[in-house]
């Protein structure tokens, strides 16, 4: 995926029309970015192996690994 530098991860995934960016840990319902300003925490994704990162606050970087988060996400390391 190629996106302009400086853009947020959330903007990048929305451009590429991912229909949802996470499922909830409670009911596994699909969710997508909602506020784009760091308030609602709906956009959390697994970014570079770390779960629960707010995609609307993280700028895209070269080689970044972005994964849809399922429920609680995984804890690596």
């Amino acid at each position: 995926m190629r996106v302009p530098a400086g853009e947020s991860v959330a903007a990048a995934v929305l451009v590429h029309a991912l229909d949802h960016t996470r499922t909830t840990p409670v009911s596994h319902a699909p969710r997508a970015p909602f506020c784009m300003m760091g308030v609602c925490f709906e956009c959390v994704m697994e970014i570079d192996g770390i779960a629960n990162r707010q995609a609307c606050l993280v700028p895209v970087a070269e080689g970044m690994q972005i994964r849809r988060q399922h429920g609680t996400g995984r804890i690596d390391e």
Binding site: P4, A11, V15, R31, P33, F34, M36, M37
Partner: peptide, 21 residues
């Protein structure tokens, strides 16, 4: 209101301002 595809209008403005989306 929790369905993907439902978004705040101001959020859409942010997408337009910051990414032209």
């Amino acid at each position: 209101w929790t369905l993907p595809g439902v978004m705040n209008l101001g959020a859409a403005q942010i997408l337009l301002k910051s990414a032209g989306v």
